[in-house]
Amino acid sequence: MLAIDAAAHSSPWRRVHPAVKGTLFGGLLACALVLPVWPGAALSALAALAVGFGPARVPPRAFARAAWVPLLFVLTGAVTMLVSVGGPDAVLAWAPDGWRRAAEVAGRAAAALCCQLMFAFSTPLADLLPRLARLGLPTALVETVALTYRMLFVLLDTARRIRTAQAGRLGYQTRAAWVRSLGVLGAAVFVRSFERARRMRRGLECRGYEGELTVLVDTPPVRPAALLAAALPPLSVAAAALHPGMWP
């Protein structure tokens, strides 16, 4: 399994309704994007981290491992705002007020990333997919998406095994060998994915498959009190950020 999904499945908030978690982390995400970066984004990030590492017990190491690549993207992108190109005096020069702009973008994106990751670390994708149909998406499409989700872990495992076998035969020693091995790996995954789909169809037909993949979905009721409690942190952040004279 992938680290984020594995952590989500073992999260103590696994049984909390996705709408409640969506209200909490989605609300904080909206605060991070819409409110002034100081203190709005900072408070949103703090609230998301406090809730995530506190009651939701998101593993900090897995969180850091998932966050570093997008954070590097954010930082690299922000660094480009420090310089200006093609000015009248020099081809490359420090951008006026560039550091402020870079800090604002990086701060906002880092806060938003915290909210997104905390939601992902506490909500398995398997809990979200069946609810897509309730949003009005066609059942056929939702079932195709759910099938993709169910198949991708097996295929990822297949790809990992093939790659290990190839590496054991020195298949990744040179760049040319890497390209060849990767081509073989891609082709093998394609063939196996289609073969697996065919075998699944045969298995389903033996069980009376007529085109509908009905599965039982655990549907805990959405309690209004829980929704209200989830909305409190974003509302508090918004109120605190918009309160004039409270912050330096």
Partner: peptide
């Protein structure tokens, strides 16, 4: 996708496999 699945329910499985293949393809290391 919806029309393909409605016309042939078996297409759903192959499309699911295609989606999974696209995800795995983007996860390969070059």
């Amino acid at each position: 996708v919806t029309l393909a699945v409605r016309a042939d329910p078996d297409a759903k499985l192959l499309l699911g496999a295609s989606g999974a293949f696209c995800f795995v393809l983007s996860a390969l290391k070059i």
